[in-house]
């Protein structure tokens, strides 16, 4: 593996020119939502464990399990070393002047050792990513169950140089197909289906909507994969750049795949631009493994308009990465309009 990679790096492929970033769900990518709460200084440190216990029984803060109850005060010169969350502002009894005694029922918590309350803002939901965790922690100490893969992926460091070299090669094939389609007056979009374990290209397709309005590159590619497994319902034989490899190896049989045509189970798709709604859902139906795309599209359904791969109600979810050969894929779309008008002029 290694020497091959070095050769790639030195010659055709400059894998340093692009970074693949994950397209995460809205929950994972949104800003940290904050909620107001009352905190109070613990003036007598010795009372801390009793206070926490008693506060927990009166105000358990059930929806804020990710928030630490007590925080250390870092500023020098403050009269107290610790602060404790008392309750959410929304839970507090309605009153004009807030005092520690008005917040605490006389029989529940002894307010000895607590100072006067003040309002703080704490993260409303558990952080899902390291950036969210770092933001949340600026407001109040928060616990975080880190998904290491997401953290590494968000830094753009998930894929090793040999992996990137292969991704580069697959997207180059998609780019080549896109250009071949463009030559024929189609939209400049190419797609490549890959068996990642075998490191093998199963099918290559380009946009063919000149003769069928729904033959987007992804749909073409899915049908070519079906053909590679003895199915399929179209012939793309007149397009030399649309190809498939006949199935000379057995796919790992799993219970689901044996009775159902979830033909893309475990496969990776490389496509030059973000799939539309139809294509994205076609990938869900086909149980795609992962999708890599070069550049976003206006009505894109894997990040831009929808994130169909993270849609809660759907029965199949998958990982999506964008930015593979982003520049080259973007250029493809930019020249696309120009070429299309040229083609129309010629055909008139």
């Amino acid at each position: 593996m290694e020497p091959q990679t070095k050769r790639w790096k030195g010659s055709v492929c400059d894998t340093d020119s692009w970074v693949a970033y994950p397209v995460l769900s809205d929950e994972q990518s949104q800003d940290v939502e904050l909620i107001e709460a009352f905190a109070a200084p613990i003036v007598n440190k010795k009372e801390t464990s009793r206070l926490v216990r008693e506060l927990n029984s009166v105000y358990p803060l059930n929806n804020l399990q990710h928030v630490k109850r007590v925080r250390a005060v870092k500023e020098k010169g403050s009269g107290h070393p610790l602060e404790v969350l008392v309750c959410l502002v929304s839970e507090a009894p309605d009153m004009k002047v807030v005092s520690i005694d008005s917040l605490l029922p006389s029989d529940g918590v002894r307010s000895d050792g607590l100072g006067e309350p003040f309002v703080v803002r704490v993260p409303a939901r558990p952080p899902l990513t390291r950036p969210q965790f770092e933001l949340a922690s600026k407001h109040w100490p928060t616990s975080f169950h880190e998904d290491k893969q997401v953290t590494v992926a968000l830094r753009g460091e998930l894929f090793s140089p040999p992996q990137k070299a292969r991704m580069h090669m697959y997207m180059m094939s998609a780019l080549t197909a896109a250009k071949a389609g463009k030559e024929l007056g189609m939209e400049a979009v190419g797609a490549v289906m890959v068996h990642p374990v075998m490191e093998r290209i199963i099918a290559v397709g380009h946009d063919c909507r000149g003769d069928h309005p729904l033959h987007h590159a992804v749909m073409v590619c899915i049908d070519l994969v079906a053909r590679s497994q003895g199915g399929g319902c179209y012939s793309f034989d007149r397009y030399p750049a649309c190809t498939f490899t006949s199935d000379t190896f057995q796919k790992v049989p799993d219970a689901e795949a044996s009775s159902q045509p979830y033909i893309c189970t475990g496969y990776d798709l490389y496509v030059t631009r973000e799939p539309c709604v139809m294509c994205a859902m076609a990938l869900v139906h086909s149980r795609i493994g992962r999708v890599f795309y070069g550049t976003a599209s206006v009505d894109g359904a894997l990040g831009t308009k929808y994130k169909i791969h993270t849609q809660k109600d759907l029965n199949h979810r998958f990982e999506v990465y964008k930015g593979v050969l982003g520049k080259q894929c973007e250029d493809l779309n930019n020249v696309d309009d120009h070429v299309k008008t040229e083609h129309l002029k010629k055909s008139r």
Binding site: L214, M219, I222, D223, A226, Q229, G230, G231, G232, C233, Q260, P261, Y262, I263, C264, A282, H285, S286, R287
Partner: peptide, 18 residues
Amino acid sequence: NEVNETKNATRHAEMVAL
């Protein structure tokens, strides 16, 4: 629906009719 015979999971009735 022609999903099983074509091994193409996109062959829903609407796509076939279209």
